[in-house]
């Protein structure tokens, strides 16, 4: 009955799409995100990557600390580099780190949460103690220590974020799995002879997948902000110009004192808007996944 399964999947997708479309915050979030994704993907067309190199910038004869009117759309920094170019290429790094770290976070969190909730007993107690351990450890010092031990590159940043931010996902999923596990249809399936693999794949996962997706969209902004924080603290990858890195360099080189707002404002606003967009999408998906949140009846 594959055609039936496909039909069903199409119907579900259609329903989710229709519900998503009818939500104004969801549509706004999605449009904004789409714009930034286009910018990130089209970076090579929009801005010359060589402009990120101070030597190239100097050779091109760019002015230093030029305001937006004086040079290009967004002016230049202390090293004569175009802020526009940094903004465009920074969106690429920030979005990539945000998404990659989220995949890691959600994978660890989902596996721990589902196993813990479904298996229960001693394994649950053990996994939850570990989760709590990660929850109570002050996040920033741990991230700083890990980042400095592992070294400053993009992959390590992703690893640091992934390893430190999964516990909340794990706890959320465990709670949801515990509720689903109590439902009578799980009993029914078990009485039909189903094993644990079947129960998880057929009954638990389909009933928590919406929550996983919604949780993932809400984890992206957190990852982006974490990357920004780490970069701002000087723990970012020196060779990847993320928005956080831009903010750090602007701060360190006195853009605030010089009132060179064009240096830090684009990256700051970029982070704000992307985070907001993901949050709007995440909330909308959460409402679709969990009807209790959205409907009044």
């Amino acid at each position: 009955m594959t055609s039936l399964a496909m039909q069903r999947r199409r119907a579900t997708a259609g329903r989710v799409l229709a519900q998503f479309r009818s939500s104004k915050p969801g549509v706004i979030g999605f449009s904004v995100l789409l714009l930034f994704v286009v910018i990130a993907l089209a970076a090579p067309l929009l801005a010359d990557v060589r402009e990120l190199n101070p030597v190239f910038a100097r050779a091109s004869g760019n002015p230093q600390w030029a305001s937006p009117g004086e040079f290009g759309a967004l002016g230049t920094d202390h090293l004569r580099r175009s802020v526009w170019v940094q903004f465009v290429w920074g969106s690429r790094v920030s979005l990539f780190v945000g998404l990659a770290a989220t995949i890691l976070t959600i994978s660890i969190g989902s596996v721990v949460g589902i196993v813990s909730g479904f298996v229960g007993g001693r394994l649950d107690a053990f996994l939850m103690r570990i989760t709590e351990w990660f929850l109570v450890i002050p996040f920033l010092p741990l991230a700083i220590v890990l980042a400095s031990i592992l070294g400053r590159n993009v992959w390590n940043i992703i690893l640091v974020i992934g390893v430190t931010s999964w516990p909340s996902t794990a706890r959320l999923l465990r709670a949801q799995v515990l509720t689903v596990k109590q439902r009578l249809f799980v009993d029914r399936s078990r009485s039909l002879g189903a094993g644990n693999g079947h129960l998880v794949a057929r009954h638990i996962l389909p009933n928590v997948s919406g929550l996983i997706l919604a949780n993932a969209t809400l984890a992206v902004p957190i990852s982006i902000l974490t990357e920004t924080t780490l970069s701002f603290l000087g723990l970012g990858d020196p060779s990847s110009p993320s928005w956080g890195k831009t903010l750090e360099e602007a701060f360190v080189n006195g853009a605030m004192v010089r009132n060179a707002w064009w240096y830090f404002l684009p990256a700051g606003l970029g982070i704000l808007v992307v985070v907001l967009a993901f949050t709007l999408i995440g909330r909308t998906l959460e409402e679709i996944a969990d009807p209790r949140l959205g409907q009044s009846r």
């Binding site: 009485s191 002879g193 189903a194 644990n196």
Partner: peptide, 16 residues
């Protein structure tokens, strides 16, 4: 005994 060795124990001839 059930196919993938989990905790459930279903009887084919006994349904609920």
């Amino acid at each position: 005994s059930e196919p993938d060795g989990g905790r459930g124990r279903g009887n084919r001839g006994v349904q609920m």
